[in-house]
Amino acid sequence: MNSDPGLDGPILNRRAMMAGTGLSLLAFASPAMAQPAMADIVDPAAPLRTLYSGGRWIEGPAWDRRGNALVFSDVKRNVMMRVDAKGVGIFRSPSNNANGNCFDARGRLLTCEQRTRRVVRQEANGRITVLADRYRGKRLNSPNDLTVAADGAVWFTDPIYGITVPDEGIRAESEQPGRFVYRIDPSGALTMVEGDMDQPNGIVFSPDGRTLYVSETGGALKPDGPREILAFDVVEGRKLARRRVFARLERGIPDGLAVDRAGRVYAGVAEGAGVWSPDGERLGTIPTPKPCANIAFGGRDGRTLYLCATDSVHAIALRTPGIL
């Protein structure tokens, strides 16, 4: 059996083992992988290991540091899964078409539920607390992804995928005048922090918390829509300023986002995980067999990158640690 670089035990997904999981990056090498800057990030010969396969549309990977496990969402199957040294199993079913997940500083799991159009938190006793489901008295669109700031505030995106895309929620008319980025204060107060985006999606802070990155994925619903990663200055931990385009794609969209400790930005893209320098220079790609939606760092040392690529979850050991 192959050992997963981010888990203590063997990979136990039966389908993956039967198919053979030792997929070498060289088998999916692209010209971007030859760029010298990528050598500091990943060994070109590093194996891409398959932890789970057979899903429908997988997103929302989140590393549980206390449980040494990965939690992720199979959005269209309406379940959340968990993989650890013992194997792969169902974590929550039904999941309310859960999408983005993350853990807060106290180890509580935060989840964007597309079907119920809310952001929830699972408490230590298993109880579910609703953090946000309405803004100014009207239902949210379809919370998609989220991240936690150093002060404990939860920032999340609210596009319309869950109310428009089949099997990702329940079709409905939007009650909001736009698709916004929100902040949930530790007090519980909900504020809109960015109101001029087409389809905000992935969201992550820079390592110092001074910059917020948000993927703009309007191109997924209309050919001429935006396909960008936007960057904002974070002002006093509560507001955004100096909006600018950090990166732009010619095709596909940048979906889920992650950052490493050096400030490099990673995004799920059609070819795998695209990587950019803190200055916005495209460094290369960590390729996956199928289009990659979401990514997350994990493992005991933070050097494992988990990639949700369409119907499978892969893992690869990197040379650089990420922000968990």
Rank of each mutant, 00 (worst) to 15 (best):
N96Y: 13
L324K: 01
R238D: 14
I316Y: 00
D196L: 12
C112H: 06
M33I: 10
V154A: 11
R115Q: 13
D4E: 07
P166T: 10
V265P: 02
G162Y: 03
E250T: 10
G299D: 02
E113K: 06
A124S: 14
A45T: 15
V120D: 06
S187T: 15
L283I: 07
T21W: 13
E173T: 13
R227K: 11
L110F: 00
R243Y: 12
A293W: 06
E59S: 01
C102L: 09
S215L: 03
E281N: 12
P177A: 14
L140K: 02
D185N: 14
C292H: 08
M18S: 13
I203T: 04
D196P: 10
S187F: 12
R171W: 08
R115I: 02
H314S: 09
T21M: 08
D8E: 15
L12W: 10
M33C: 07
N125D: 15
S53W: 01
A37S: 11
V269P: 06
I170Q: 12
A46L: 08
L26M: 15
R282Q: 12
T50P: 01
I323N: 09
G162Q: 04
P143E: 00
S174W: 00
D224W: 06
L240D: 04
D279I: 01
D260I: 07
D151Y: 12
F72T: 03
D198W: 09
R14H: 09
G67W: 06
I160G: 02
A29K: 09
V79T: 08
D208A: 10
P223Y: 04
M1K: 10
R300G: 09
G9V: 12
R106C: 08
E113T: 15
A69D: 05
D64C: 02
A27T: 15
L26K: 14
S93I: 11
A98P: 01
N201Y: 02
G256W: 00
P200R: 11
Q122W: 14
T288G: 05
Y52F: 12
G178A: 15
T288E: 03
G178C: 12
L109R: 02
Q176F: 00
E228S: 05
G87L: 05
L318D: 00
E250V: 11
T147N: 07
M197F: 13
G188P: 13
P289K: 09
R92E: 14
C102S: 02
D208E: 13
G20V: 10
A69V: 08
S95L: 11
T21Q: 10
R303H: 08
C102D: 05
V148K: 00
F205E: 04
N97T: 06
